[in-house]
Simulated scan of single mutants.
Amino acid sequence: MTARDRSLAVLVAVLWGLNFLAVRVGLDHFPPFFLAALRYLVLAVPVVLFVPRPGVPLRWLLGYGLGFGVAQFGLLFLAIDQGMPSGLASVVVQASAPFTVLLGALLLRERVTGRQLVGIGIAVLGMAVIAVDRARVAPLLPLTLTVLAAVGWAVGNLASRQARPRYPLRFALWMAVVPPVPLLALSAVKEGPGTGWRALGESFGPDGWPGLVALVYIALLGSVVGSGIWTALLKRYPAGVVAPFSMLVPVVGIAGAWLALDETPTGWALAGAAAVVAGVLLGTGWLPAFLRRGTDTAAAPRTREGSGGLPPGGQAAGPTGASQGTQRS
């Protein structure tokens, strides 16, 4: 990989990591389900008008949109709104990778190797450490919602893998057409039918510009720009070369939240976060060979095992909405 392309990969990780800060700012101006709906509505209109359809079965497009878009982003935004620190959220949502492996084994009968099981165990241990640490000072509901958001991402991953889109970027963009209606319905039921729209009107006032800036960042920089650069890199290099850069996302998320939002994680939270990242790296085969030697089962074929050489969550979109996997928001 050239120095220029390495810089672009780091830039994407920074964009995705800072997206969690933008979500936190946006939630100060919009209710969570409505903000998630707006994030997709901004993309859905131009996608329908200008992007050719991806040519995949409708059930997989709906499954991808409902799992990745509605479940992941709806629950993630709700979790942060309920008090989940945005920096920790950027780590916990990476649990989508081990969840993808487990759901693939249960639903698609994919083989799980010894290395993947060890990685899953380490990631689960890390989440348990974070849960125990959080339970001492705050309710566990926001953490639970974030874990469920990671499960939603994993469900979207499986739908994306089953779709096998010929044009992955088109598929990722057309996914944005699915979430607005269910998210707006959830917003109307939980947040009130007019609450979000009033917040949108107020955002055009003198004090509402941070919410609009956050929305533009989430929808355009965190999704379209990041997705475009990442997809271009994956066309030039193998996924195993590009994918590890996505693990900079939680690093940027935690550092950015610490600097901009004064979110100071405890030592235990950092240890748990490191375990989650290490588990994801090991389970998806990114650790150096000498570190994972002996963890693979002897003759396990790698035909369709979990996330393989893909980034956390496999072939899907990252927590920012940028497409991850073999395409890689």
Rank of each mutant, 00 (worst) to 15 (best):
S329C: 11
M84P: 10
A199S: 06
P85L: 09
L106F: 09
T100E: 11
V124D: 14
V112L: 14
A36L: 05
F68A: 07
G65Y: 05
A214F: 08
V241I: 14
P182L: 12
T320R: 08
L287D: 00
D296K: 14
L200I: 08
G226Y: 07
L43S: 05
V177R: 02
V10W: 15
L88M: 11
F290M: 08
S160E: 02
L215K: 08
S307F: 06
A232D: 15
G26N: 07
G65D: 01
G313P: 07
V10K: 14
F204Y: 05
A199C: 08
R164D: 12
G318N: 13
Q162V: 02
F30M: 03
L220I: 15
R164C: 05
P301H: 06
G309L: 08
G26S: 09
A289C: 09
P288C: 01
T113M: 02
A95H: 11
V132T: 12
G308I: 04
P288Q: 12
G194I: 05
L61M: 11
G309R: 14
G272E: 11
T303C: 05
R53I: 09
L186P: 04
G65L: 03
L78V: 02
W258S: 05
Q116M: 12
L8G: 08
F245W: 06
P54A: 08
L125V: 15
L184F: 13
R304I: 13
L173R: 15
G222D: 12
P244Y: 07
L103G: 03
G126D: 13
L38R: 04
R293K: 15
L212V: 12
V48Q: 03
A176S: 11
P301Q: 04
V93G: 11
T2P: 10
Y64S: 08
V216C: 13
R24S: 05
E263W: 03
G83Y: 11
S187R: 00
A79R: 04
S329G: 12
V242E: 02
T144Y: 15
V277T: 07
W286S: 10
Q116V: 13
L287E: 00
T195E: 09
L106I: 11
A188F: 05
L49D: 10
G205S: 08
V132L: 11
G256L: 08
I120H: 00
P179I: 09
R109F: 00
G226L: 13
G69C: 00
T297G: 14
L233Q: 01
W174M: 06
R109I: 00
A3H: 09
L38S: 06
R328I: 15
Q72S: 04
V23I: 15
V213E: 04
Q82S: 13
V124F: 13
G308P: 01
R115T: 07
S323W: 14
L117Y: 09
I120Q: 00
F73C: 09
L212M: 06
T297E: 15
S86N: 01
Q72H: 10
L233F: 02
L49N: 10
P206V: 00
L8P: 09
L186W: 03
P301N: 04
T100Y: 09
P319F: 12
A271H: 13
A299C: 06
P180W: 01
L281K: 03
V124A: 14
W153N: 07
A154P: 13
R109P: 02
G126Q: 02
P52G: 04
A128C: 07
R304T: 15
F290A: 12
R170L: 06
V112C: 11
D207S: 11
A79Y: 06
Y217P: 03
G201H: 07
L173P: 10
G325C: 01
G104W: 05
G308R: 10
M1C: 08
